[in-house]
C-alpha cells in the first residue's frame, strides 16, 4: 500500500520529463508566446516595499517594438518622477531625466527607478537567444506541477544575470517562478508570475502572452520586494519615430 502511494506520488514527475528537443521547443515557445510581431504599449504599475523605508510607486508606460528590439519605460506618476524614462536601442540602455536634461548610459543590471525590477522584466522574452537550457527535473509549486529548468548565458551575450532557474507550469507552459543568479553563483532575485494573460494581436495574427503580475523578492536586501502589474495592453502600431532620444525629450521636456 505504501509502495503504491509512493509510486503515485512520483508518477507526475516521471511522466513529464523533457527530452532536449522538447526542452528547446518549450523555451522557444515561452519566447514566442510573449513576442508580438508589431508594437506594444502597456500601462504598468510598479510598487516597491523596502525595509525601514517608505514605499516607492511608479505609474509608467511601456512602449515596445520587438522587430527592432526597442523599448521605452516612461514614468508618468507620481508627479515628481514624471517624465523620467529609459530608452533601450540596440545594446544601449539610456536613462533620461528632464530635470537635468541629460542622457546617461545604464547597464543591464540597472534597477529600474531604484526598484528591484530590471529592463528584462518589461521587455520581450529572449531566453532561447540568450541562454542555453537544461532540464533539472520536475517539482510542484502550490497546486501546480512544474518543470525546473536551468538557463546559462551564451558566450558574448550581455544579460543582467548569467544564470537563471525557471519553474514552468507543465500544463500551460507559463513561467511561475524565476530565480536569477550573479556570476559568483549568488542568488539575487526570486520572482513569481501568478497571473498570465493572453490577448489576440492583429499584427502577430495570434495571441500574445504577458504576465499581468510579477512579484520580485530581493534576495540580497532581504525584506525588499517589488510588484509589477501590467494593467492594460495595446498592440496598435506606435508612431514610427518613437524610439529616439528626441521623442522622449519632446514628451517629457
Amino acid at each position: 500500500m505504501v509502495r503504491l502511494a509512493l509510486a503515485l506520488t512520483c508518477l507526475p514527475l516521471v511522466a513529464t520529463a523533457l527530452t532536449p528537443k522538447e526542452l528547446s521547443a518549450l523555451v522557444a515557445e515561452i519566447d514566442d508566446r510573449q513576442r508580438n510581431s508589431g508594437d506594444w504599449k502597456s500601462s504598468v504599475y510598479i510598487e516597491q516595499k523596502q525595509k525601514d523605508k517608505e514605499d516607492v510607486v511608479y505609474d509608467s508606460v511601456i512602449y515596445r517594438r520587438d522587430a527592432t528590439d526597442s523599448l521605452i519605460i516612461l514614468f508618468v506618476g507620481p508627479k515628481t518622477e514624471s517624465g523620467k524614462g529609459y530608452l533601450r536601442i540596440d545594446k544601449n540602455l539610456w536613462f533620461y531625466d528632464p530635470g537635468t536634461g541629460k542622457w546617461e548610459r545604464r547597464t543591464e543590471r540597472e534597477r529600474i527607478g531604484g526598484t528591484d525590477s530590471n529592463r528584462a522584466d518589461f521587455d520581450e522574452s529572449r531566453l532561447s537567444e540568450e541562454y542555453d537550457a537544461k532540464h533539472l527535473g520536475d517539482e510542484t509549486i502550490g497546486k501546480f506541477a512544474v518543470h525546473k529548468i536551468e538557463l546559462v548565458v551564451k558566450t558574448g551575450v550581455d544579460v543582467a544575470y548569467p544564470k537563471l532557474l525557471l519553474w514552468v507550469d507543465t500544463q500551460t507552459h507559463n513561467i511561475l517562478k524565476r530565480q536569477e543568479f550573479a556570476a559568483s553563483g549568488r542568488l539575487m532575485r526570486t520572482s513569481y508570475y501568478p497571473k498570465w494573460k493572453r490577448a489576440f494581436s492583429r499584427s502577430k495574427g495570434a495571441e500574445v502572452w504577458y504576465p499581468e503580475e510579477i512579484r520580485v523578492f530581493d534576495e540580497l536586501e532581504k525584506g525588499n520586494k517589488t510588484t509589477v502589474l501590467i494593467r492594460k495592453v495595446d498592440f496598435d502600431p506606435l508612431e514610427p519615430n518613437i524610439f529616439t532620444k528626441a521623442w522622449l525629450e519632446s514628451k517629457s521636456g
Partner: peptide, 25 residues
C-alpha cells in the same frame, strides 16, 4: 494562472502631469 483578455487602445498621457518635470528643469 492564465486568463484571456483583449488589447485595448488607451491614452497613456490622459492623466499624466509632466508639469513637475518642466518645473524641475
Amino acid at each position: 494562472v492564465e486568463e484571456t483578455t483583449t488589447s485595448q487602445a488607451f491614452d497613456e498621457m490622459a492623466a499624466a502631469d509632466l508639469s513637475d518635470a518642466r518645473r524641475r528643469a
